[in-house]
Design a protein around this nucleic acid. Structure first.
Lengths: 115, 115
DNA sequence: TAGCGATATGTTCATCTGTACATATCGATT
DNA sequence: AATCGATATGTACAGATGAACATATCGCTA
């Protein structure tokens, strides 16, 4: 038998009213939208279907106090998507929080002894 | 329109080799097994089917270095389940980690501003 | 006004998940 | 040996999820 590689990765989800609202996938998606200016490019870059990415964006825009992205249809380039200040700040806040949490996890690896 | 209640709950999952291995549900399940001495009672207490609870226990036992629970069949009481030292320590380590993470989340609520 | 490219949305199908139900198994006690 | 209660496991079905595919829509540009 081969030796099992035991990597530990901690994933943090923020629930809203009992439902998952924000997590690593959405943070990455928003970051990629910000980088590419396009939902479809971001989705392709993550290996995710455009429809799913769009649904995520739509849900976030619906549930958040202020929309995270603003999409434009038509035009020379066919359209495009911009991440709003609220979206950027959400990603930043989540990323910072993840960083602090990762630091804690790194510091206390006692979990590893029992996995 | 009614004012939406915006509660934030952070859920932490520990992935193992890319798959979810341990999270809040399993921590609660193990704790309840420890309290009740029975998988079925713990499952019922969580509103979870026995089969699913058993499958979780089985998977954890399979993947962890040492089993988290040891089950006994038969006997006067029909059987029972004991949480091992490794299992207790895993729950403790996870719970402690969650506590520290919660403390961080409490301290930095900047996320709330964008939800 | 025709073309382009991205947004927006619907439909279908396979897959995964969990529930519900059924059954078998075990071992101390009676 | 019959009973009991919990473990152990199989099967069938419903709901959720995601992938794949197909369209429709929009607005600038040429």
């Amino acid at each position: 038998m081969t030796k099992a590689k035991k990597e530990i990765r901690v994933r943090v989800w923020v629930d809203l009213d009992g439902e998952r609202f924000f997590g690593p996938g959405r943070a990455e998606l928003l970051q990629l939208i910000q980088d590419t200016g396009s939902i479809s490019k971001a989705a392709k870059s993550m290996g995710m279907s455009y429809k799913k990415a769009w649904a995520m964006v739509d849900e976030m825009n619906e549930k958040a106090k202020k929309p995270y992205v603003i999409a434009q249809k038509g035009g020379q380039k066919g359209g495009g998507t911009e991440v709003t200040e609220a979206g950027k700040k959400m990603v930043d806040a989540y990323t910072r929080m993840m960083g602090r949490i990762q630091a804690i996890v790194e510091k206390d690896k006692s979990l590893l002894d029992y996995i």
